[in-house]
Amino acid sequence: MKLTDFVVKDAIITDMSVNAKDEAIRTMIKSLQGSGKISSENSESVITAILKREELGSTGIGNGVAVPHTKHPTVDGLVSTIALAKGGVDFASLDGELVYILFLLVSPPDRPGEHLRALETISRHLRNQDFCNFLKQSSTPEEVWELLLEADQKDG
């Protein structure tokens, strides 16, 4: 599975400046809403679902990275966006560190295999320190997109 198959280019944020987890998730969902991937009437419900998932355990999995996610019946396919928070966000991460890269994923409930494969793809790239470093240095959505294309290509 390729990152560019499910990341929504128009919803990528490279200068997210928020203090709290809920604010970060809200900002990212609003960005997906702005790109037309999540409707305005459903966005609150998606935000609530993601925050509820966070209650089960933070998706701040260490290394300055978080992967907030949920399954939601209002999406037809995998929908994802990336946000870079240069100042860091307190995500109650498992390692106690701030989060600088956020990969948010919403997927349809009837396709658990795809959801898992997307998380697998995201994790595989995020454990590559070079990928994380280049991502953090990106200052425009275009730069992030180029990086994703390159990562997908290397992935074969």
Binding site: P112, L119, L126
Partner: peptide, 13 residues
């Protein structure tokens, strides 16, 4: 011991 590694298993049911 590494969540990142575990996630890359992509182990479905």
């Amino acid at each position: 011991k590494t969540i990142f590694d575990l996630m890359t298993l992509g182990a479905v049911k």
